[in-house]
Simulated scan of single mutants.
Amino acid sequence: MIINILGGGPVDALPDLQPFDGKECVWLGVDRGVFTLISLGINPDYAFGDFDSVSQEEWELIEKKVENLHRYKPEKDETDMELALNWALTKEPTIIRMFGATGGRLDHFLGNVQMLLKAEQNHLTTHIEIIDCQNILYVKGPGRHQIERLPEKKYISFIPITLDVKGLTLEGFKYSLTNRHISLGSTLCISNELLSSSGTFSITEGILMVVRSSD
Rank of each mutant, 00 (worst) to 15 (best):
Y155L: 05
I156E: 10
V165A: 09
I161S: 02
R149F: 08
T178C: 00
L163E: 15
F173Y: 04
Q146S: 13
L170S: 00
E148Q: 14
S157V: 02
K166L: 12
I156G: 11
L150C: 09
N179V: 01
E148V: 06
Y155E: 06
Y155D: 11
D164K: 13
P151F: 03
Y175A: 00
T162I: 04
G167C: 08
R144I: 09
Y175E: 01
L170E: 00
T162K: 12
I156R: 12
F173G: 06
E148F: 12
I147D: 09
G167P: 02
H145M: 03
S176M: 08
E152R: 12
T162Q: 15
E148G: 05
K174F: 05
P160E: 05
G172I: 00
Q146E: 15
L168H: 07
L163T: 15
Y175N: 01
I147Q: 04
S176K: 14
T178K: 03
V165K: 01
L177Q: 11
L163V: 05
I161V: 15
R149V: 14
K166F: 09
D164Q: 15
T178F: 00
I156F: 13
T169Y: 07
L168T: 10
I147E: 09
N179I: 00
L177C: 08
F173W: 01
K153M: 10
F173N: 06
N179M: 02
